[in-house]
Simulated assay, not measured.
Amino acid sequence: MTRIPLTARGAEKLRDELKELKSVRRPAVIKAIAEAREHGDLKENAEYHAAREQQSFIEGRIAEIEAKLSNSQIIDPTKANANGKVIFGATVDLADANSGDEVTYQIVGEDEADIKQGLISVQSPIARALIGKEEGEVVDVVVPGGTRELEIVEVRYQ
């Protein structure tokens, strides 16, 4: 199976979610199922069916997180010898060549991506265009809105 790249922060978030699911949400749904069973006929018991559906979701998410963590590769960009190149985990300051707008993105794993926080997936068009490039280079990025010309202003490994 393919290794899933994660930053240390991303792996920690997944571990925290797994702990929450196992220690809080799973016991709560088991209790809800037991209470719903006490109401009698299970065929027409909406509370029971809703609780079972919730339990199925929780168990599926637990299995998904455990699989991701067991197949993950934690990458620490501060320990990589990237020589100024954009790599997984790097934080990149970009300037739009046309508008002059500046943005900062950190390239992270798919599960960590959150554009509102400046975290973009390594699978995104912008990240794929940036990987391997250096400060001062200009890259053309094909995005849903067309092609953008972005200059790499600074690359940081935090």
Results as ranks from 00 to 15, higher is better:
residue 67 A to Y: 14
residue 86 V to M: 09
residue 38 E to S: 08
residue 111 D to H: 04
residue 133 K to N: 06
residue 129 A to C: 06
residue 47 E to I: 04
residue 35 E to N: 08
residue 65 I to A: 00
residue 46 A to P: 06
residue 23 S to K: 13
residue 113 A to W: 15
residue 97 A to Q: 15
residue 149 E to T: 12
residue 7 T to P: 03
residue 22 K to D: 13
residue 8 A to L: 14
residue 47 E to H: 00
residue 65 I to E: 02
residue 93 D to F: 03
residue 102 E to M: 11
residue 148 R to G: 11
residue 149 E to W: 03
residue 134 E to C: 11
residue 12 E to F: 10
residue 76 D to S: 10
residue 73 Q to K: 09
residue 63 A to S: 03
residue 91 T to M: 07
residue 1 M to G: 08
residue 2 T to L: 15
residue 21 L to P: 11
residue 92 V to L: 08
residue 150 L to N: 00
residue 98 N to H: 07
residue 52 R to M: 13
residue 66 E to T: 02
residue 144 P to D: 02
residue 49 H to C: 09
residue 151 E to A: 11
residue 4 I to V: 14
residue 140 D to M: 14
residue 45 N to G: 08
residue 147 T to V: 01
residue 120 I to T: 04
residue 107 I to K: 15
residue 61 R to M: 04
residue 121 S to V: 01
residue 57 F to S: 00
residue 81 N to G: 00
residue 62 I to D: 07
residue 77 P to C: 00
residue 34 A to E: 03
residue 32 A to L: 01
residue 136 G to V: 04
residue 80 A to G: 06
residue 95 A to S: 12
residue 87 I to S: 12
residue 103 V to L: 13
residue 116 K to W: 15
residue 74 I to R: 02
residue 68 K to L: 02
residue 93 D to E: 14
residue 60 G to L: 05
residue 99 S to R: 12
residue 96 D to V: 11
residue 101 D to A: 14
residue 102 E to C: 07
residue 158 Q to E: 14
residue 123 Q to M: 01
residue 153 V to F: 07
residue 98 N to A: 05
residue 51 A to Q: 03
residue 60 G to D: 10
residue 75 I to F: 02
residue 97 A to Y: 10
residue 70 S to I: 05
residue 41 D to T: 06
residue 148 R to Q: 04
residue 158 Q to V: 00
residue 39 H to V: 03
residue 51 A to K: 02
residue 51 A to I: 11
residue 110 E to T: 07
residue 50 A to G: 03
residue 49 H to F: 14
residue 45 N to Q: 05
residue 84 G to S: 01
residue 40 G to A: 01
residue 121 S to T: 00
residue 155 V to I: 01
residue 148 R to N: 06
residue 98 N to V: 04
residue 97 A to M: 14
residue 19 K to H: 12
residue 150 L to G: 09
residue 7 T to H: 05
residue 79 K to P: 07
residue 9 R to I: 05
residue 119 L to W: 14
residue 87 I to V: 15
residue 144 P to Q: 04
residue 126 I to R: 10
residue 32 A to N: 06
residue 33 I to A: 08
residue 119 L to S: 08
residue 156 R to T: 01
residue 4 I to N: 10
residue 154 E to G: 09
residue 42 L to F: 01
residue 91 T to R: 13
residue 38 E to R: 07
residue 129 A to P: 13
residue 59 E to L: 04
residue 77 P to E: 04
residue 110 E to N: 10
residue 125 P to M: 01
residue 21 L to I: 13
residue 87 I to G: 13
residue 3 R to E: 13
